[in-house]
């Protein structure tokens, strides 16, 4: 019987691997490159994404040394547009998740640590809000608050993300607060702020970071969906989502231009895959399951 149990454990460990693995680091490097390129875009010698290159003009041009991903229907460089388009997508996704984490995370830590009626009420409210499809609320508010700017997107999407972050961080805080070392700190006479900053937050942040990364990926996807409804940033500003929405019109002959479709898609999907992979790995690495919330 002992032998049997051991073999079972070994196979299960093989399935649920506890290492981060090389793919994790490949994804991390890819995210770093994309983010760095987006931030440094004006200074790395890219052609302008908006100004048309009249010396070397080509509409729907092919891939070449001058235009790596070809040119779009307006003669603009697609590679530059993909790199620059990432700026608004990243700004909105990181910004809104930061907002959600700051408000939702702080509220959750205090509510869960203090407990009592405040915790019960805030948890009930957040659960009720989660029953409401957040994407539709975002669409409704954006459509009445045109024209969309990155700031409005960050604000609305960020607020809509608060309940989810709240629930996740609350679960992690509750688990952490039950630990012996928190009790020990309390017995030693540590004040609440000290316990929260020295004991609770170090235990909670890995979970929060994992969900932060998964949240960034889902906001990038949401921004694309909003662009298809015409609710993302307005021209001349552009993001990955609006680039795809432009490309959607270009799959029908005679004005086909696959470079406009394939490259933004590839960049965006690879970025989302990397984020999801890292977030998922971190989540299982720090062993957080939905069931424990």
């Amino acid at each position: 019987m002992d032998v049997d149990n051991k073999t079972v454990e070994v196979t299960l460990e093989n399935v649920v691997t506890k290492k981060l693995g090389p793919v994790f680091w490949i994804c991390a490097v890819w995210i770093a490159i994309t983010v760095a390129a987006a931030i440094l875009a004006p200074w790395i010698g890219l052609p302008s994404p908006t100004v048309v290159d009249y010396n070397n003009f080509s509409m729907n041009g092919p891939m070449s040394a001058a235009h790596w991903f070809g040119t779009n229907d307006g003669g603009q460089d697609i590679f530059a547009r993909v790199v620059y388009g990432a700026r608004i997508s990243l700004e909105v996704s990181f910004g809104s998740m930061l907002l959600a984490s700051l408000i939702g995370g702080t509220a959750a830590i205090f509510a869960a640590y203090k407990g009592g009626i405040l915790d019960t009420i805030s948890n009930a409210v957040m659960t009720l809000i989660l029953a409401f499809p957040a994407a539709l609320a975002v669409i409704a508010i954006l459509s009445f608050w045109m024209p969309t700017t990155p700031f409005k997107l960050i604000l609305i999407v960020g607020i809509s993300g608060i309940p989810l972050i709240f629930r996740v961080v609350r679960g992690a805080t509750l688990a952490a607060a039950r630990k012996e070392y928190v009790l020990a700190a309390h017995v030693q006479g540590a004040k609440t702020p000290r316990i929260i900053f020295k004991e609770i937050i170090p235990a909670v942040w890995p979970t929060a970071v994992a969900f932060f990364i998964l949240g960034v990926a889902s906001v990038i996807m949401l921004e694309g969906a909003l662009a298809f409804l015409g609710l993302s940033v307005q021209s001349p500003a552009f993001s990955w989502g609006t680039l795809l929405n432009e490309a959607r019109q270009k799959i029908y002959p005679p004005n086909q231009n696959f470079n406009m479709l394939v490259w933004p898609c590839l960049d965006m999907v690879l970025f989302i895959v990397s984020l999801n992979f890292i977030g998922d790995r971190l989540r299982s690495y720090f062993d957080v399951t939905e069931g424990k919330l």
């Binding site: 996807m221 694309g224 969906a225 795809l244 959607r248 696959f258 898609c265 999907v269 989302i272 895959v273």
Partner: peptide, 18 residues
């Protein structure tokens, strides 16, 4: 399945249309 999970539906639909 992990990669497919990360592809938004609107990307899938454009490529299917094409």
């Amino acid at each position: 399945s992990f990669v497919i999970w990360s592809i938004p539906s609107y990307v899938i639909i454009i490529f299917l249309l094409e």
